[in-house]
């Protein structure tokens, strides 16, 4: 004990220096948005390699399960192919016109906070940029936020600030979808006018009115709905098809016509 105290006293200047330096960095981080993003990027870079290592090891133990999931996805795609026999476009690399798909693996995923994020193992070197959409085998997952050379962080759909343009598949009524928090399998779809009909079990798909996602990508299905007191809009509870607590393989969507779209809509 005595020796520990002696050691602390001997190095007190170094300790005080480190403490004050920490204060200074917190101050830097809080005062300047530029430094904040740069520091975040640095953190992502460091943590990314660590998580990758962890994920690589953990990945081995779920190989069988993943195989099953991939087979299931394959089956669905084949089904789609037989449903549109003449539409050969559906097997070309650009599945939906104007969008390029890139595969990535999720190496870190959170679902228990108010603002959940994921980290994927593809970054700027794989042409991943900010604000690209991410879809999983079952439906949409999130939007890319920040990238480093080898990694990218993304806002999950379970992020309090993310709003997605979505519609009912049956009658194309548009609304805005967001996560109210708490449960990882409940989303809310609002701003759907009461002149449309809604039924439990209806499928919700992306609306295609944003730059991130093409239209008609599945999101989830209606589990409950109510009419708001104003009698003008529904509030619809949606259960997403994607299981956000078990994400592994995802696809990054690059909108090839984004610049063109933004010229019209600055």
């Amino acid at each position: 004990m005595q020796q520990i105290i002696n050691a602390i006293f001997r190095n007190k200047n170094a300790l005080i220096y480190l403490l004050l330096l920490l204060f200074a960095f917190v101050f830097l981080n809080n005062r300047s948005y530029y430094h904040q993003t740069r520091l975040e990027k640095l953190g992502l870079k460091l943590a990314g390699s660590l998580w990758n290592l962890q994920d690589n090891t953990a990945n081995y133990f779920s190989l069988q399960q993943q195989n099953k999931a991939l087979l299931e996805e394959n089956r669905k795609l084949r089904e789609l192919l037989t449903a549109h026999p003449n539409d050969t476009d559906s097997i070309s690399p650009t599945l939906l016109p104007g969008f390029t798909y890139r595969h990535a693996r999720v190496i870190k995923n959170s679902f228990d906070q108010a603002r959940n994020t994921l980290v994927i193992d593809k970054g700027a070197r794989d042409s991943i940029r900010g604000e690209m959409g991410i879809v999983g085998p079952d439906g949409i997952v999130g939007i890319v936020n920040e990238t480093t050379a080898h990694y990218a962080s993304a806002l999950s759909l379970l992020h309090a600030d993310v709003r997605i343009n979505a519609k009912l598949k049956t009658n194309d009524a548009f609304g805005s979808l967001y996560w109210p928090g708490v449960e990882a399998n409940r989303l809310l779809l609002t701003n759907i006018s009461t002149i449309n009909t809604v039924a439990v079990g209806d499928i919700i798909v992306t609306g295609g009115m944003s730059d991130y996602f093409p239209k008609d990508i599945p999101i989830g299905k209606v589990v409950a709905f109510k009419i708001l007191p104003s009698k003008r809009y529904y509030e619809i509870e949606v259960m997403p098809f994607t299981n956000f607590t078990a994400l592994e393989h995802v696809y990054i969507l690059q909108n090839n016509r984004r610049e063109e779209l933004q010229q019209l809509n600055p």
Partner: peptide, 29 residues
């Protein structure tokens, strides 16, 4: 030890007045 604290506050005051984020504090410290 006193110099460390003085240096920290010297930098901090400069940062606050010159509208730099934390660079003076870190460098002076």
């Amino acid at each position: 030890t006193v110099l460390l604290f003085l240096g920290f506050f010297l930098g901090l005051f400069l940062d606050l007045m010159l509208q730099t984020a934390g660079a003076h504090t870190i460098a002076t410290l």
